[in-house]
Computed example of a mutant assay.
Amino acid sequence: MIGGTPAPRCPALLFCPGDRPDRFDKAAAAADTVILDLEDAVAADRKARAREAVVPALRRLDPSRTIVRINGVGTPWHDDDLAALAGSPGTVVMLPKACDVAAVEALAPRPVVALCETAAGVLAAPALAAAANCAGLMWGSEDLVADLGGRPGRTPTGAYPPAVEEARTRILYAARASGVLPIDTVLVDLADADLLRADSAAAVTAGFAAKACIHPSQVPAVREAFRPTTEQIRWARDVTAAAGTASAVFRFAGRMVDAPVLAHAAEILRQAERHG
């Protein structure tokens, strides 16, 4: 639970086309949470077929590990998606191109992951995250670059351009400020394993709780990045134990330890338990 609203399992969220029911169980088994996609991964002439595949699958898939990305507000398929999902009111939905808090709240009491992938969505992130039924915020790099009128690509060091990095940071701040799940964007370059590891490590360091994937092969790298190392876990346990017999501020392994340091240690132990 995050902020009283059920949150998706972390850290690896895997998109799966809604019109490929043969992949549903494999995707669910591979990832921590599967995102059955009725939007971008499904052609317009297959939307109805995707809904017909997704709805019965929700009866057997673990609801705590399943999200359905519906089509956006104002599209010809949005209302049909909601009507099809009426029998599964507890299923978390991902709302693409989210930019209006009223659109998120209109889905209540259903939990919603708001996908911020436009300039308007990034600027509206604090209001979206504050909606009572918001379970998480995710940002979408590819659609955002297109909306900004920019060009795909990274800086020579592999980092996002400043305008895109700012969007990533805004989503993280908005999510954490409201106590909802911050989810990092997908990497569409399936061949660049080094960039995936770097992106995942950067997401962990910044404070994201999860990262979305578009192929099962990406899941192990994401899980590895989010799992604390043996050395980090040992340090967290030792410093926490030392705090029980020390004053408010003390020295441990050559480092000053106070309340913020102990908070870092507690978070490492929480992550270790969460990620096994």
Rank of each mutant, 00 (worst) to 15 (best):
R237I: 13
T229Q: 13
H264M: 15
R270N: 09
A242L: 08
P228I: 08
R234H: 11
A236E: 13
R227Q: 13
A248P: 00
R274P: 10
P260D: 07
V261L: 15
E224H: 13
A248S: 03
H275Y: 12
F252Y: 06
H275S: 00
V239W: 03
I233K: 06
A253M: 10
V261K: 08
T230E: 11
T245H: 09
S247E: 06
E224F: 12
L269C: 07
W235F: 09
R251W: 11
G254V: 05
H264Y: 12
R237H: 12
A265W: 14
A248T: 01
G244A: 06
W235N: 08
F252D: 03
G244M: 03
A225G: 02
R274G: 02
F226M: 03
D258K: 00
A263R: 15
V257A: 13
F250R: 01
A263G: 14
F250Q: 07
S247N: 04
A248D: 00
I233Q: 05
A272Q: 14
F252V: 03
R251F: 01
I233W: 04
P260K: 07
A241C: 08
R237S: 14
A246E: 01
M256F: 15
A246D: 03
S247Q: 07
A266M: 07
V239M: 07
T229P: 08
Q271P: 04
E267L: 15
I233E: 14
V261W: 06
R234L: 11
F252G: 06
A253K: 13
R255L: 04
R234W: 12
T240N: 11
R227D: 09
R223C: 08
M256G: 13
A253W: 09
A242K: 02
A236S: 13
A236C: 15
R234S: 14
D258W: 00
R223N: 08
V249D: 02
F252K: 00
R255Y: 11
P260M: 04
E224Q: 10
V257I: 14
A263I: 08
R255Q: 15
A236L: 15
V261Y: 04
H275Q: 06
G244K: 12
T240D: 11
A259Q: 06
Q232A: 09
R270C: 13
V261R: 05
T245Y: 13
A243M: 09
G244Y: 09
R274W: 03
T230W: 00
V239T: 02
A242H: 02
T240W: 08
A242D: 00
D258L: 07
D238T: 12
E231F: 06
A241E: 11
